[in-house]
Design a protein around this nucleic acid. Structure first.
Lengths: 201, 201
DNA sequence: GAGTGTATGTTGACGCTGTCAACTTCGATA
DNA sequence: TATCGAAGTTGACAGCGTCAACATACACTC
């Protein structure tokens, strides 16, 4: 019979670990995530996580994968509102992308930075990022067919656009851009410049 | 009189520490830099560095600052070859910038990543990055006056362009772009798309 | 229902890390 | 020549990731 004391088993420690690590990252950066601190916050021993993840890196990968899922869902929802041939479709997605990074800076860094995670290639994350990218390529193809942008290798176009928004997001969250500038305006201008450069003519 | 044994004092440990840390970063990433390993490589005790730097973070900041100096010199040399009104001036600098990042990935990450360094703002690095950026703004202004690109807030233009090359560089060095694609072609295409978007008309 | 296997959680220990205080060495200045 | 401060060393400490050995409790089979 369960009494007032904590049960020996947690219930769903694996899920709780991912959520708590994400919360710590949001609160004070990926550097603050510690197996011991994680255990303390979940009222569990420091080694409990090792029953669910091979090592700390594997846990962080799972956190990053959850971040990709969130970003993917967010972008899909935004995109669902735009007609396939609208010239605002791409700039809108770009804005949503940068906004996600601004609202979850440490999370975003964890997802895309090779430094925080293992140096080695992690299939789980590569596939998540690839799925996102493939969706983007599909949109470029549709925009080409609708005559909005010029006919070129859509993968190259997608890389250029992704690089641009990723770079802007990175500079912003790493404090490289003076806070004096109007961020919304800057995001908008990047979208406009890219669309002008890609426009069919 | 000096004999065969190592002298007690190093001579110029401060400079040696920066150089050796940079070498270790190039060899095996910023994560491999350790006060103890640094001491071993320089045949000095693990705490010797603390006579020259307040803590490890201060040392890494000095390393990053040295990186900024190198990048600045490299870009200045490249730029000196281009006529002020040449439409190839900006794409060329962009290429050189990305190439620097590709050749010194860990170095580049240290310079621009907020994660590896302290979360706080470091004046030394901010000024180095600002100097680089101000030079870029100057080029945009000259290109506007020469009628190459459209007249707009040159700072905003510079942020957009910097963001784009920074993003492309980051994606490349963090392995987010499949190695199958032709990197040189991609860099070129980003330059062309940006210039098309910025072109005076 | 009793017994047992396995998944899950705990504890002790190890070597690694950054850093400090106390100590030593040595070059420069009075 | 005496001395002072800069530069380097050593011992120690707490915190880290991780492993091996152990404890617990749930989910089966008989």
């Amino acid at each position: 019979m369960p009494n007032s004391t904590r049960p020996y088993h947690h219930g769903d420690l694996r899920t709780a670990l991912i959520a708590e690590a994400a919360a710590m990252i949001a609160e004070s950066g990926a550097g603050s995530v510690t197996m011991r601190a994680l255990g303390r916050r979940l009222e569990v021993s420091r080694a409990a996580a090792y029953r669910h993840f091979a090592d700390k890196g594997a846990l962080m990968v799972a956190v990053a994968a959850a971040g990709f899922a969130r970003l993917q869902g967010l972008l899909a929802a935004i995109d669902a509102d735009s007609p396939a041939d609208s010239p605002h479709r791409l700039p809108r997605m770009g804005e949503a992308y940068v906004r996600f990074a601004l609202e979850n800076p440490a999370y975003y860094r964890l997802m895309y930075g090779r430094e925080a995670l293992a140096r080695v290639d992690v299939p789980e994350l590569r596939e998540a990022a690839n799925a996102l990218f493939d969706g983007l390529v599909g949109i470029f193809l549709m925009q080409q067919r609708a005559g909005v942008i010029r006919r070129q290798d859509p993968r190259a176009q997608a890389y250029v656009a992704w690089g641009a928004v990723h770079g802007l997001a990175s500079l912003l969250i790493d404090g490289q851009i003076l806070t004096a500038v109007d961020v919304d305006r800057l995001i908008q201008q990047m979208g406009a410049t890219l669309m002008e450069g890609l426009r069919a003519r």
